[in-house]
């Protein structure tokens, strides 16, 4: 079992480093997971993470890359909803990494 230890509290992760329980998520957790991936979260990152959490509330699944781009374009406009912008923010694997930082399960429809 993977564990993320944050200010004395242990948070359970699956074997790929995704939160086991969506409710364990907090901004501190997101920052700690981002640090592990070598990312410092900027406002541009946060708006995508919030968007992903909205996506999950609405559809109860994690998006693959294509639906993530489509949803982002729909909610934040095409200048944010494109693969260039999302790849730049999330080390080239936006669907997987952003889902992890947003506390969602690993997207199943991604290779």
């Amino acid at each position: 079992m993977n564990v993320l230890t944050l200010s004395g509290k242990s948070i359970e992760l699956d074997k790929d480093g995704y939160l086991l329980d969506l409710n364990d998520w907090s901004t501190e957790v997101a920052q700690a997971l981002a640090a592990q991936a070598g990312i410092e979260l900027s406002p541009e990152h946060w708006e995508i993470l919030e968007l992903l959490r909205r996506f999950y509330q609405e559809f109860e699944l994690s998006p693959a890359t294509r639906p993530l781009i489509k949803y982002t374009a729909l909610k934040l406009g095409p200048e944010k909803g494109n693969s260039l912008h999302l790849n730049r923010l999330f080390n080239g694997t936006p669907a997987k990494l952003a889902a992890k930082l947003a506390g969602l399960p690993k997207p199943t429809n991604c290779l």
């Binding site: 996506f55 609405e58 559809f59 109860e60 699944l61 998006p63 693959a64 294509r66 639906p67 489509k70 949803y71 429809n109």
Partner: peptide, 15 residues
């Protein structure tokens, strides 16, 4: 159970 009805709403997002 997982909410299949919510999942079905994602069809349009998946193209």
């Amino acid at each position: 159970q997982k909410n299949l009805t919510a999942n079905l709403q994602a069809l349009a997002m998946f193209g």
